[in-house]
Structures are given as structure tokens and as C-alpha cells.
Design a protein around this nucleic acid. Sequence first.
DNA 1: CCTACCGATCGGTAGG
DNA 2: CCTACCGATCGGTAGG
Lengths: 198, 198
Amino acid sequence: METTYINRKDHIRQVAQQLFRKNGYTATSMRNLAGEIGIEPASLYSHIKAKEDILQQICFELAGSFFDAVTPICDALIPTEEKLRRVIVAHIQVITNNLDASAVFFHDWRHLGMESLKKFRTLRSEYEELFRSIVRQGMAEGTFRKVNEKFMVLTIFSAMNWTYEWYQPGMNLNSEAIGNNLADMLINGLKTIERLKD
Amino acid sequence: METTYINRKDHIRQVAQQLFRKNGYTATSMRNLAGEIGIEPASLYSHIKAKEDILQQICFELAGSFFDAVTPICDALIPTEEKLRRVIVAHIQVITNNLDASAVFFHDWRHLGMESLKKFRTLRSEYEELFRSIVRQGMAEGTFRKVNEKFMVLTIFSAMNWTYEWYQPGMNLNSEAIGNNLADMLINGLKTIERLKD
DNA sequence: CCTACCGATCGGTAGG
DNA sequence: CCTACCGATCGGTAGG
């Protein structure tokens, strides 16, 4: 049986993601990686310059995916509550579509070198600001309760970013349902309440 | 100036927590640790048997703190909503009082050896069940909306456990306020709503 | 708590 | 993509 493989560099990154997720970046050796792929350790360096290159690729490519998914929603002219719901769903879909990369992204970004680390932190701040501005808007117009804005956004990210820890592809909840459940919970809360019609 | 030090074993663990939190368990060498303490690497082994011993101490002692803080609240005869609020506040206080240990607990538990790992997972399940039973009770009696129970509890833990990533001791929010804000948000949601009196 | 040291493994390079 | 190999560093032990 013949299989068409993706190119070697992507193959390396894919296997690396799995190993980094399972054992952590530092605990994964280039020998582990090469062994899993089925080549000699030294051969990896025909495709990559250094171990950290792989980490950089994983982190920055996923960062790109987050921005690509969320930015168009931020620019859309839709009600604030709906906007928040949609960015939550979009963010979670990126995570569930990239579970290995997400685990590395959230765990191992701090092992990036100084230069990459700085760039990474900047990107992350910019991304968080996208959510912060939606929350700010909602509070200003009275859609959302006025609570500490920073705290609010941190909580939203907390709830979203833990998803990769427990989500499994075979689950009875698909990723859109998870996003909507989470948005429901954050927006409407857990309590049984009588609501006046909108 | 004389200082009374805590005993050496505790000192080792305390410094280890800081280093593990900053650089990760695997990326921290016994030489790093010894250097930070100011002794020779080999001298560490007068106080501990192995590197993993330190990780075990950190993880299981913090697990104990979580149980100690939350169990009495679970046993109390108080309304379900209040009970959920209090376990959330208690859990977050354990985290904010043990920031280094919490970071290690949430990040590095997977580097425990097979035996400890199994024990750790069992404890964690038991702990999660404490929260799950409160949520279940609340849904049964109509205090909480009926949503997927497992999902609900995972979201609560997500929001709580991310705290160690951004909480800093000097913040204008103290840990009880953070717990209450979080409980508010999870219980009442973000939306501006008209509520009937309880 | 130190000196001296072990075998194993690390990320990476030279040269083909 | 491989063979052969580098210097550095790893967790840990022997013996005092």
C-alpha cells in the first residue's frame, strides 16, 4: 500500500507536536523525535536548523491561525453579545482543530529564545486586546455588567484555553457546541433565572 | 543580621518550586538548584533521594491543601449556590497562597513516575468529584440550569486553575475578591439582566 | 556537606 | 539521509 506523505519538514513538525505535547518540549530529545520518524538523529538537521526552530514554527503558526479566525469577526458589524459569542466559538475551534499544537502553544512557549519570546508576548497581548475591546464595548453600551475588564478577559481566556486539556476528538460534544456552551455559560451564568424578554 | 532558616529540606523544595515554575521541571537541573541554594550538587542528595522526590512532595502536599480547604465546605449544611461560591473562593485561595507550587502542580505533574502519576490522577478525580456533586445537586434542586455537568465542572476548573498564570501578589484584587468575582461570573454570567428577587 | 567521579545522554557538526 | 563524532551536561554514587 502506498501512502502519499506530506513533506518531511511538516512530518517532523507533526511528530514533534505529538511528542512535545506528551512529554514536554525539554523532555523530548532530538533522538526521540528521529526515532519516532524513523531516521537518524543527525538527519533531522537537513530539514531544520535547531530544535527551537520547531517550537517557533508551532507557536507562531498557531498564533497566526488564532488571528485569522478571530480578526474578521471583530471587524464585522454585529451586536456585541453575538460578537463575543462568535470569537469564543472561533477560538475554541482553532484549539480543537490543533490539539497537539495548542498544548505546546500553551505549555512550552516559555522555552522560546529571548528574541522569539518577546515577539510571542507581543502577539499575545495584541490578541488579548481583540477580546478586551469587545468586552469594553459591551460594558460601555450596557450589554454586559460592569466588572473589572482585565479580570473578565482573563477568565474568558482561562475557560477557553483549558479546553485542550480535556477535549478529545471522539467526544459527543463537537467543537462548535463546546464553544457555544462556554459562551452561554460566560454570558448567561449558571444560575436559574427568570429573564425578561430582550 | 541573623536569620532563622527553615530546615534545609524545606529550603530545597522552596527554591525548587521557584525554578520549576520559571523554567519547568525537566529544564531545571540539580546543578541549577544547588547553585541557587549555594551548595554543591552532590550535597542535595543528603536531603533528598532523587529529583523526582521533590516533584512528588510539591504535588502531593498541594493536593492535600486543596482537600483540606474544600472538604469542610462540602460537608457543611448551606445552600448549594453558597456552597459553590465558597469552594471556588477556597480553591483560589490555595492557589494564590502557593503560586509556585501551583504552577508546578498544574504544569509538571505529568513528569511524575508511573506509580505517583497513578496516585495523582486518582486524587485529582476524587477532588473533581467534590465539585461535580455540588453542581449535580444544584441542577437537581433547580438552583442551576441543567447543562452538561461534566462540561460545567471542567469550565469551573479551567477558570480557577488559570489564576496562577496571571495573579501577582501585589495586585489590587486580593485572592478572596478574585474568588468572589469568579464565582459571580460563573454563577450569574456576564450579561446585564433583570432579575426577579430571590 | 564536599571532592571526585560514573555512565548516559544531550543538541549539534563535519563530511560525505 | 547516514556514519562518526564533538564538548557539554545530565542525575546520581562512593567515600569521607
